[in-house]
Amino acid sequence: MTTERGQANLIGLAAALVLLATVTTGSVALASIALADADTDSETRHAAETLADRLVAADADHTRRANAVSENAIRALNTTAVDRLAPSVRNRSIRIRLGDEVLVERGDPEKTTVRRLVRVEQYERRTTTVDLVTQRSVSLPDRTETVELDISTDGTTTLTTVRANDRIVLRDRSGLSGTYEFKVARVNPPQLEFTTEDGVDGTVTVTWTETTATVEPLEVTVGA
């Protein structure tokens, strides 16, 4: 009876050892799979975050400054430009969405999504003509950055100075004539003032770029 019980105990111990080995091997295999998935997820998230950061970087071709994009330029993005911008997404499925519009899509990415809020700017050139007989100043809209002047006089008027918010931007004592371009501060709406000598017969054509903007979500999805 003792011998039979001992043999049974040995058989039970062997079975337990086999079961333990099986469970341990399976656990190691599952752990390896989990680690591999975690590594893949980490790489994908890094690629998505890198692309999102590059899309809103100040030095990108389609941005005016950090987190401010030109609407026309960003809508012209394609997969070639995206791969050049963020090499880590090459050969991966990607989707870039601005607001409700998909800008770029390759494959069917569903793995990792990163979002940013961006200022989307639209630009339109505007022109007005200042008649120096009746007008010596003009106010331009807020956020005007660059101004172009086309100065034309009849020879009896000498336009010597142009000021923007009391700052002299152009001066020529012998007379300004022709086309000029200069930048103005974005802090306040610019007001241009014109100083003349002699007669007051002449015109100044003022051209500027008017900026309007909205804030929209930029969504980047990256897959395998």
Results as ranks from 00 to 15, higher is better:
Arg119His: 06
Leu176Asp: 12
Gln122Cys: 00
Arg126Met: 14
Val169Arg: 09
Ala58Gln: 10
Val114Ser: 00
Thr129Asp: 08
Leu10Ile: 02
Arg136Trp: 11
Ile96Arg: 09
Leu51Ala: 06
Asp41Leu: 09
Asp41Thr: 09
Thr112Gly: 01
Thr157Ile: 02
Tyr180Thr: 01
Glu105Ile: 07
Ile33Trp: 03
Thr22Trp: 07
Leu35Tyr: 03
Gln135Asp: 08
Leu35Cys: 00
Glu121Arg: 13
Leu132Ala: 11
Gly175Asp: 11
Arg163Ser: 11
Leu17Asp: 08
Glu101His: 12
Glu216Trp: 02
Asp39Gln: 10
Arg84Ala: 15
Thr203Val: 12
Gly6Pro: 00
Thr80Gly: 14
Asp59Thr: 04
Asp108Leu: 12
Glu197Pro: 04
Pro190His: 02
Val130Ser: 14
Gln7Asp: 07
Arg90Leu: 15
Arg143Ser: 13
Asn188Ala: 10
Val104Leu: 08
Pro190Ile: 01
Arg95Tyr: 04
Glu121Leu: 13
Asp37Phe: 05
Asp53Leu: 05
Ala185Gly: 11
Ile96Ala: 13
Arg119Asp: 08
Ala58Asn: 08
Val200Asn: 15
Ala68Cys: 10
Ala224Gln: 08
Asp201Gln: 15
Asp61Gly: 14
Thr205Val: 13
Leu103Tyr: 06
Asn67Ile: 00
Ser93Met: 08
Ser42Trp: 10
Thr22Ala: 13
Thr22Phe: 09
Asp100Pro: 02
Phe194Pro: 01
Ala15Gly: 07
Ala66Asp: 05
Val120His: 01
Ala68Met: 11
Val204Tyr: 08
Gln135Cys: 03
Leu85Arg: 10
Ala185Asp: 15
Asp37Tyr: 08
Arg97Met: 12
Asp166Met: 08
Ile74Thr: 00
Asn91Pro: 00
Ala8Ser: 09
Gly107Ile: 03
Ala66Pro: 01
Val104Asn: 11
Leu149Ser: 04
Thr25His: 12
Arg84Met: 12
Ile33Glu: 12
Leu149Gln: 03
Thr146Arg: 10
Gln135Thr: 11
Val23Lys: 01
Glu219Leu: 03
Thr2Cys: 00
Ala213Tyr: 15
Pro190Arg: 02
Ala48Phe: 02
Ala47Leu: 08
Thr156Tyr: 03
Asp154His: 09
Arg136Gln: 15
Ile151Ser: 09
Asp41Cys: 00
Ser88Gly: 04
Ile74Asn: 00
Thr80Tyr: 13
